[in-house]
């Protein structure tokens, strides 16, 4: 009995500092923001602060730029499965007998740590439409009109997806690498004895075994995709013609360029709802393909 009480107290003491911090720096601002979404607040001085009910939400329904940002954001999500897939392939390669494993692993992981502001400009020069090395290479290979990459409304988002895949892949790779080492040898060997080819071993033994991790990486990746800001802000700023404008950029622009704080909160809350829906969707979808032992 006494132990139980002490246990209770210890539990609270352990989590208390973190709870206080999270309440102050996350929860309270979040609730505050929820409140703002129902106002026409135009700035920190509070001029004209009026409760406007659902006006902002109604405006959202007919805001073409908002819906464009939603579509762009969903398109941008494409880098998540790409990055998980490539991460798996690279991890599988590194999991075999290969020379320089440590050096290779480091080069694959390093981009994950580099700031988007710093590396964004390097990418811009690489993808420079006329003088960049990528297009110069394409031209010398005989491509007559190489894509304009970040300069074109058609290719800007695919280019951004390439960069995002490049940046997030390392994390997925490291996690896969670890899990692959845990796939029980006897399962693989048993399959081989039954005459399974190596792709069948991957398909029927490895993939099911690692499916919980794959699921986890997809969920985390999706959340981050809806929150990302720095890289796109650095390489395109949302352009050309809003073709890479995703929701976090639109929130920032509405709040700090137009100073429509109330409306910005409304967009931000919709963003939160969208993230929540996607996570739920993935959660219920997982039953079809994730195996827990």
């Amino acid at each position: 009995m006494k132990w139980m009480k002490r246990q209770q107290l210890a539990g609270y003491l352990f989590v208390l500092p973190s709870i206080i911090g999270v309440t102050v720096f996350f929860l309270i601002p979040l609730l505050f923001s929820f409140g703002l979404a129902f106002t026409n607040w135009l700035g920190p001085t509070g001029r004209d602060l009026r409760f406007v009910g659902l006006t902002n939400f109604r405006r959202l329904l007919f805001d073409g730029i908002f819906w464009k940002a939603v579509r762009n954001n969903v398109f941008y999500l494409l880098h998540v499965p790409l990055s998980v897939g490539v991460g798996f392939l690279v991890a599988s390669g590194l999991n075999r007998r290969v020379f320089f494993r440590n050096g290779l692993r480091a080069s694959f992981f390093l981009p994950y740590l580099i700031s988007a502001v710093a590396i964004g400009f390097s990418w811009m020069l690489l993808f420079h439409p006329t003088q960049g090395p990528i297009n110069q290479l394409l031209v010398s290979l005989g491509v007559r009109n190489p894509p304009l990459w970040l300069a074109s409304t058609k290719y800007a988002m695919p280019t951004v997806i390439i960069i995002a895949t490049w940046q997030s892949m390392g994390f997925n790779m490291i996690i896969f690498l670890a899990v692959l080492q845990e796939v029980p040898r006897h399962l693989k060997e048993a399959a081989q004895i039954d005459g399974a080819k190596s792709w069948q071993v991957v398909r029927y033994v490895t993939l099911p075994y690692i499916s919980p991790i794959t699921f986890f990486l997809l969920v985390i990746g999706t959340m981050n995709a809806f929150k990302s800001f720095g890289m796109i802000q650095a390489v395109t700023g949302g352009g050309p013609v809003n073709s890479t404008l995703i929701l976090p950029l639109y929130v920032y622009r509405t709040a700090f360029r137009y100073y429509e704080m109330g409306y910005a909160s409304t967009i931000a809350i919709m963003l939160f709802v969208i993230i929540f829906l996607f996570t739920m969707l993935q959660w219920y979808g997982q039953r079809r393909w994730v195996y827990y032992d």
Partner: peptide
Amino acid sequence: LAIQKATN
């Protein structure tokens, strides 16, 4: 315009 912008 697009070229001018994109190439800085």
